[in-house]
């Protein structure tokens, strides 16, 4: 098998996902099948081939460092699940 159940649990932890045993089993099989298929790429010799991360040849898009219209505090907080007048609230981080 291409990706073990242990690998799936490890990757789920990196991605901050909580999986039950059935999901670990299923994802391990399905992702394993996908990775087996992805291995067809190894039939190609890509020695010296450039990497493409972006299909259009653009360099950096610069702009003047000036303050523009932006979301105010109220709008920026409007969708927060827990907040007060000025802050996002999260569960306690330091015990």
């Amino acid at each position: 098998m291409k990706i073990s159940k242990k690998d799936v649990v490890h990757v789920a932890n990196l991605a901050r996902l909580e999986l039950d045993d059935a999901a670990v089993e299923k994802f391990s099989l399905q992702i394993g099948a996908i990775l087996d298929y992805v291995d067809t790429l190894n039939r190609l010799d890509t020695t010296g081939v450039r990497s493409t991360s972006h299909a259009i040849f653009l360099t950096n898009a610069f702009r003047d460092d000036r303050i523009k219209q932006h979301l105010g505090q109220e709008l920026a907080l409007a969708n927060a699940p827990e907040k007060d007048d000025s802050t996002f609230w999260v569960p306690r981080v330091i015990g």
């Binding site: 990775l35 992805v38 790429l41 190894n42 190609l44 890509t46 081939v49 450039r50 990497s51 493409t52 991360s53 299909a55």
Partner: peptide
């Protein structure tokens, strides 16, 4: 092995 390789194959497709 994965992202790097796929990005090179992307160049070949382009």
């Amino acid at each position: 092995a994965y992202y790097g390789k796929a990005s090179q194959v992307r160049s070949l497709i382009m």
